[in-house]
């Protein structure tokens, strides 16, 4: 099938099988390798992307489902050289260690922050409960997300 969609604000048109996994479309066809595969069955969240602002595990989504949709991956979070607040916060608070889970966490956190710019710690923990990290113990990830926008607003003042 011919798939037409937008990825990170760019129009995309590719020939693909309808049941191609979205993660393979992104990583293999579009060479957007920021999206990671940790399990291939919806359990680790490393492959999380936004589909029309909603987070989804791209290892479970067939390509046909993003026809005409807007997909945002970790590569689409920064505005050019300007990191998104949540990316900046991950750097400051130490939210990334080995980094393999980081793209999924950032995309998921961005989805949360779009809805709740100032989440409580418990909201952050709930929102990120589908993403696994084996390096950090989550403490610094929760710190980063909780303070992401507080930090950004502080910086603008």
């Amino acid at each position: 099938m011919r798939l037409e969609c937008r990825v990170n604000n760019q129009a995309v048109s590719v020939e693909t099988a309808p049941m191609t996994r979205l993660i393979d479309l992104l990583r293999e066809d579009l060479r957007l390798t920021g999206t990671k595969e940790g399990c291939g069955e919806g359990e680790c969240g490393a492959c999380t992307v936004l589909i029309d602002t909603k987070p989804a595990c791209s290892c479970l989504v067939p390509a046909v489902q993003v026809q005409d949709a807007h997909v945002v991956t970790v590569e689409g979070l920064a505005k050019g050289e300007q990191l998104a607040a949540v990316q900046q916060a991950f750097l400051e608070f130490g939210g990334a260690q080995c980094g393999i889970c980081t793209p999924g966490f950032l995309v998921m956190a961005q989805a949360l922050l779009n809805e709740h710019p100032h989440p409580t710690r418990e909201q952050v923990r709930e929102a990120l409960a589908g993403n696994l990290c084996r390096c950090t113990g989550y403490q610094k990830i929760v710190d980063a997300v909780e303070n992401a926008l507080a930090g950004a607003e502080h910086a603008r003042q």
């Binding site: 999206t35 970790v74 979070l77 920064a78 990316q87 991950f90 750097l91 130490g94």
Partner: peptide, 12 residues
């Protein structure tokens, strides 16, 4: 800032 931090938060 960790030296590999920027690459890791941008998917690079």
């Amino acid at each position: 800032v960790r030296t590999d931090g920027r690459a890791k938060v941008t998917g690079q």
